[in-house]
Design a protein around this nucleic acid. Structure first.
Length: 773
DNA sequence: CAGTGAGCGAGCTTCCGCTTGACTT
């Protein structure tokens, strides 16, 4: 029997707080939301003031019964969920579900998990703020209506199991529009001039690299310029020094942590969250789902102490940052180390790296600006009026750069000059070693990574810290997007070189457009997006969330009634749903590519039941032909020529041993089918031109490899064999495979030994296979 | 593993935002 029961959201928080308070306090966690709309149907009474039907989630039943019991015994129940809209709703759901009484229930909030902050909170309790609760109900119900009315439209008009929602559908839209920007991007080229000089000063040799700020549009103009420099004298016109400074970034929020961990450590957003959760549970960092850049006074003080003692007082500068992102609710602090004097923490290497990143970023945010000196050297050319420029940057005082440099998503031009410039003075003459004009292409906007998509969503105020990672995974689970690598293509560029008064020209090659771990919209993603854009432009509007958030804020302030707000949204929205169901065509992304020269029939591309395909002939044509699109080909961008290529396979190569060898291409790449067996082509084989001889060779090679695969066969039980596999020898029985213990020789195994190994495996607890969807 | 592709109709799917484990490899 306890006097006081405090309920917080997170168990790690509960543990910490309990340590601060005496025996009279029991601190328990409710693990987030405890009640929600039932999943089975919309669970909102649309005809009766949108009354929600809440139920306790299955995984919360146990904790609720425990809390109910404890609450009954307690003298006072303190509801200490987070101070935002969702937190207020959690307290309200607890109040209702645990059947609490107003007389002995207190609502408290605190902004940092320290003893004084909690004692202060206990000193100033309040009541549950029903306006804030109503704002949450409006948010919840709007999301349910959008999700549960739109998704079924997609099932009927596109295909089953698809989904749409306020957050996920806009995320896909971002990917689709970016992809189209990239496809339609017209790359232009220009010629960039770089000059390398040699000079001697006080007996020492120096080099200086300069560039022309202006670029030439054509090769001819670049040549003309280089030619004009053949007999030129190069003289330093001016040397200018300017002071500059750099300022540290704010400490991490969920979104910026995900971005930096992706750029610096290569972590996916969900990986970052799992690692951060572990650090949080170990008490090493503060809460990892936050949109706040705020640091508590405790944090500011201990950061100062750490910086003063580790780097000296001149490295310290106290800063408080303000949140820029829309709709931030700031229920927590920024993500920071719990103890600044711990420079490393974390169980494994990945956690350690993430911790170090957080430690450095937080500390840097409380450090002095870096002071720089920028030098610009201008070089006159005697034979024309252009001016070359050399730039250098020197760090005069490193300040926060001592611990942390933020990365960017932008592609940095590799010839940006930085560092110290050699000692030059105005009027000095320079000897030209070499001057080049390099053809440079403009780059399309970049594809999104998981982390840069999160950044964009946050800028638009869409989604919350707790949902960024799940949203990224949802759009991939629904196959609206895939995360993959793309090989680049080789492109030629001109390189003109002026050296010893001779101009030479050569064509060089570079790789361009290679992508790693980028999000690509799929065909189905594009078709769903276009469908939603056409019929539900309002929901797909990038500002839709911001607009409804404004109304939720008004509800929270008591200026608007939540059911009225939902009502004014629901009627026009539902009308769109009804109209779309009645009037819209099935969407399959069909495009007419052209007319097949052989048959004179139309060639289309569209989405079929199993993905994108090309089709010759109309749907009602008995003679129509199909071909799957190849990997990397998209409905959106498939050309007529590419479609014709697709129909060149399968082709019959020749006869071998009285059966046809047929070359085709399947899920795992090109293959030869012969006598109902399949033989993969090598990467170097071209399925369109592979020869009969090569085909036979491939078949014979595979047969030989298969023959060597069997180490032992046992007459008594033909089901059991010892085979040579990719990872070494193993035992197979029917369709199941078994490991051979390390201390046994595969070649000497007897049937009895194999049976023993198999029986041993059977005794181990059966692994429950997950249901495939 | 290397196929399929229409439409019908049974019965299923689906949202966003709080929280962690209990499972697997």
């Amino acid at each position: 029997m306890v006097k006081n029961l405090i309920i917080v959201e997170s168990p790690a928080k509960a543990k910490t707080i309990e340590g601060f308070l005496g025996k009279d306090f029991l601190v328990k966690s409710c693990y987030g939301h405890i009640r929600d709309l039932s999943k089975s149907d919309i669970s909102i009474d649309l005809l009766n003031n949108y009354t929600p039907k809440y139920e306790v989630s299955a995984d919360k039943k146990q904790i609720i019964s425990e809390l109910t019991k404890l609450a009954k015994e307690a003298e006072i129940v303190w509801l200490a969920s987070d101070e935002d809209r969702e937190g207020e709703a959690i307290s309200w759901h607890l109040f209702e579900t645990l059947k609490l009484k107003e007389s002995n229930t207190r609502r408290i909030v605190f902004h940092e998990i320290t003893k004084p902050a909690i004692l202060k909170a206990i000193d100033s309790p309040r009541k549950i703020d029903q306006h804030l609760v109503d704002a949450q109900q409006a948010r919840r119900i709007l999301d349910r209506i959008v999700g549960y009315e739109l998704s079924p439209v997609l099932w009927k008009k596109i295909k089953p199991s698809l989904s749409a929602g306020r957050v996920q559908s806009v995320s896909v839209r971002l990917l689709v529009e970016r992809e189209r920007e990239i496809i339609n991007f017209n790359s232009e080229s220009s010629y960039k001039i770089v000059a390398n000089f040699d000079f001697v000063q006080n007996g020492k040799a120096y080099k200086l690299k300069a560039q022309l700020p202006k670029k030439f549009e054509t090769k001819e103009k670049a040549e003309e310029f280089l030619n004009s420099c053949k007999q030129a004298e190069f003289k330093i016109g001016s040397v200018e020094k300017k002071p500059g400074k750099r300022t540290p970034s704010a400490p991490f929020t969920t979104s910026t942590l995900q971005q930096e961990a992706s750029r610096k450590l290569g972590y996916s957003v969900s990986q970052t969250m799992v690692l951060a959760q572990k650090l949080y549970e170990a008490g090493k960092i503060t809460y990892m789902r936050t949109d706040s850049v705020n640091l508590s006074q405790t944090a500011l003080d201990s950061a100062k102490h750490q910086i003063d003692s580790q780097f000296g007082t001149k490295y310290h500068k106290s800063r408080q940052f303000t949140t820029k992102s829309k709709g931030a609710q700031e229920a927590h602090e920024a993500i920071r180390p719990t103890y600044f004097d711990q420079q490393t923490a974390g169980g494994d290497n990945q956690e350690k790296k993430l911790y170090e990143l957080i430690w450095k970023r937080t500390l840097a945010s409380q450090m002095a600006d870096a002071e720089l000196e920028k030098t610009v050297v201008k070089i006159n050319i005697s034979t024309n009026s252009e001016i070359l420029e050399a730039q250098g940057e020197v760090i005069v005082f490193d300040g926060f750069l001592k611990v942390y440099i933020e990365s960017t998503d932008d592609i940095v031009e590799e010839d940006d000059t930085s560092g110290l410039l050699p000692p030059v003075t105005a009027g000095m003459l320079l000897a030209l070693k070499e001057m080049t004009a390099t053809q440079r292409y403009t780059a399309s906007p970049p594809r999104y990574t998981e982390a840069s998509l999160v950044k964009k969503l946050e800028e638009l105020g869409i989604g919350r810290p707790s949902t960024y990672a799940p949203t990224i995974s949802t759009i991939q689970k629904r196959t609206y997007a895939v995360k993959e690598d793309r090989e680049g293509i080789v492109r030629n560029y001109d390189l003109l070189t002026l050296k010893d008064s001779v101009l030479t020209s050569e064509i060089k090659t570079e790789n361009t457009g290679a992508e790693k771990n980028k999000l690509f919209p799929t065909d189905i993603g594009i078709v769903v997006n276009d469908f939603l854009m056409e019929h539900f432009g309002n929901i797909m509007d990038f500002h839709f969330t911001a607009k409804v958030e404004k109304e939720f804020d008004e509800i929270a302030e008591g200026l608007q009634n939540w059911t009225k707000m939902i009502d004014s949204f629901y009627h026009p929205f539902h009308k769109d749903v009804e109209r779309t169901l009645a009037e819209s065509e099935r969407a399959n992304g069909v495009r007419l590519l052209g007319v097949d020269p052989k048959t004179g029939k139309n060639i289309y591309t569209r989405i079929g039941r199993y993905g994108a395909l090309a089709q010759i002939g109309e749907n009602d044509d008995e003679e129509k032909k199909f071909a799957n699109l190849r990997q990397g080909q998209r409905l959106e961008s498939l050309t007529f020529e590419e479609a014709l290529e697709l129909f060149k396979l399968p082709r019959t190569l020749a006869e071998f041993e009285g059966k046809d060898m047929v070359v085709g291409t399947g899920r795992f790449g090109p293959y030869i089918r012969h006598n109902n067996s399949f033989y993969s082509l090598a990467k170097t084989d071209d399925p369109l031109s592979v020869s009969e001889e090569r085909g036979i060779e491939i078949i014979l090679n595979k047969r030989k490899a298969d023959a060597e695969k069997v180490i032992s066969k046992f007459g008594g039980d033909p089901e059991i064999q010892v085979l040579n596999g990719r990872f070494g020898p193993y035992i197979t029985k029917g369709k199941e495979n078994f490991k051979i213990p390390k201390d046994m020789d595969a070649k000497l195994l007897t049937l009895a030994q194999c049976e023993a190994i198999i029986a041993d495996e059977a005794n181990k607890p059966k692994t429950v296979k997950k249901k495939k969807k």
